[in-house]
């Protein structure tokens, strides 16, 4: 709760979802840019380049889908863990997915990086809730 929520990564191959997230986050008052990634590999590439030096651009929040072509959400988490040791700050990861499977929910619980498993669609109320829990208003 030491900072303002800004700089969010959305990782999802669903174009409509990414547009929706961007609009909702902006409406909820997130200042800095929302970056969308259609592929896990692209997001990881950006993150690892950031981790080499402390940067304000480093995301505070990642909204991650489960089902993606190629590497999926779980692959992202496995690789993200490897990066975490080199970083100054840890982004909060929320899994944002249309999956309502208990198996996925249980699997997510095995990743300490994952704060919560959120059902789509993202709403302003959900963003407010996240902000209240982890960030300064």
């Amino acid at each position: 709760m030491t900072q303002t929520l800004r700089n969010v990564f959305v990782i999802d191959d669903d174009k409509a979802n990414n547009f929706l997230c961007k609009v909702i986050l902006e409406e909820a008052g997130v200042q800095s840019p929302v970056q969308s990634f259609y592929m896990v590999e692209d997001a990881l590439k950006v993150l690892s380049s950031m981790s080499e030096h402390v940067s304000d651009e480093f995301p505070d929040l990642i909204l991650l889908d489960v089902n993606l072509p190629g590497a999926d959400g779980w692959d992202f988490l496995d690789n993200f863990r490897k990066l975490s040791g080199q970083k100054a700050k840890l982004p909060i990861v929320y899994m944002l997915t249309s999956s309502l499977y208990q198996e996925d929910i249980d699997k997510a619980a095995g990743y300490p990086e994952v704060k919560e498993f959120l059902p789509k669609p993202l709403t302003i109320e959900l963003v407010d809730k996240i902000r209240q829990q982890y960030f300064h208003a």
Binding site: N17, S98, K120
Partner: peptide, 9 residues
């Protein structure tokens, strides 16, 4: 999942 995704959208 794939049915829900467009619906949630």
């Amino acid at each position: 999942h794939n049915l829900r995704a467009p619906v949630t959208n």
